[in-house]
């Protein structure tokens, strides 16, 4: 049985599939958030040096990881849409941008609130912090560029170019702590494992999983709206159950 991948790349079939999938991502996301934060606050021990302030890690690290990965995925979809002219790919890129921007903002915000007690400063022009700020501006630039062009096709093309060019910034963020002498600490989670306490790891990885599930659920919901907006005058949209009521 050959899987016909292209069947789901058509907006109409994808719209139905996404609709069924959303709850399967949304509810587990909520549960994992609660469970992960429970472990983070009640099971994980106090840190020897930072005492309780370190507990910000359970949202700061997942949000930062998401902000980087979501941008690469966004750039990937944008490239697909550019190369193959597949409208749904460009719609997915547009659907990911706001969520990615929010995670970049959360990463910067929680980082500042962690930096103030530990470094004594809300903000430092440090390589890691500055490149993450550039990431936030790239997200906002993508959204603004999309919104500023009337014709969806041209908007997708222009914003795709920005997204692809901007993706060089993500490796810079990741390696910034090794390339430059940064105030921000180096990578704690390496392929060879991590030096973190086991409960700290569990808490953080559960919140990370929750963030992934949340991002997927929100992006799928948003892409369905984009599909409805862009395919408004197609027959299949007119006959949609939720439209005919």
């Amino acid at each position: 049985m050959a899987i016909n991948w292209f069947k789901y790349s058509a907006p109409s079939t994808f719209y139905g599939l996404a609709g069924k999938l959303i709850p399967w991502f949304a509810w587990p996301a909520g549960l994992l958030f609660v469970a992960g934060l429970y472990i983070g606050f009640f099971v994980a021990p106090t840190d020897a040096i930072q005492s309780e302030a370190y507990r910000i890690i359970f949202i700061h690290v997942p949000a930062s990881i998401l902000s980087m990965f979501l941008y690469l995925i966004l750039a990937g979809y944008a490239a697909l849409g550019l190369i193959f002219k597949t409208r749904l790919s460009s719609m997915m890129a547009s659907a990911l941008a706001p969520t990615g921007a929010l995670f970049a903002f959360i990463s910067l915000w929680t980082g500042a609130l962690w930096g103030k007690p530990m470094w004594g400063a809300w903000w430092v022009w440090d390589a890691r912090l500055t490149s993450e700020l550039i990431l936030l501006f790239l997200y906002l630039g993508f959204i603004a560029l999309q919104a500023s062009i009337e014709d969806p096709r041209r908007a997708d093309k222009a914003s795709a170019l920005l997204a692809i060019v901007g993706s060089v910034n993500v490796p810079i963020i990741y390696y910034s702590v090794q390339w430059w002498n940064t105030l921000h600490q180096g990578a704690t989670i390496k392929m060879t494992g991590t030096s973190m306490h086991v409960a700290m790891q569990q808490g953080m990885f559960m919140v990370l999983a929750a963030c992934w599930l949340y991002a997927i659920a929100v992006a799928l919901t948003r892409v369905r709206s984009i599909i409805l907006e862009r395919e408004a005058n197609t027959q299949w949209v007119k006959e949609l159950q939720e439209v005919k009521q």
Binding site: L37, S51, E52, A53, I56, I59, I106, W109, L113
Partner: peptide, 15 residues
Amino acid sequence: MNGYAFYVWGSYGVT
């Protein structure tokens, strides 16, 4: 939060 209440709950609250 051992004195860090503002920073910890400021992070989680805004998130």
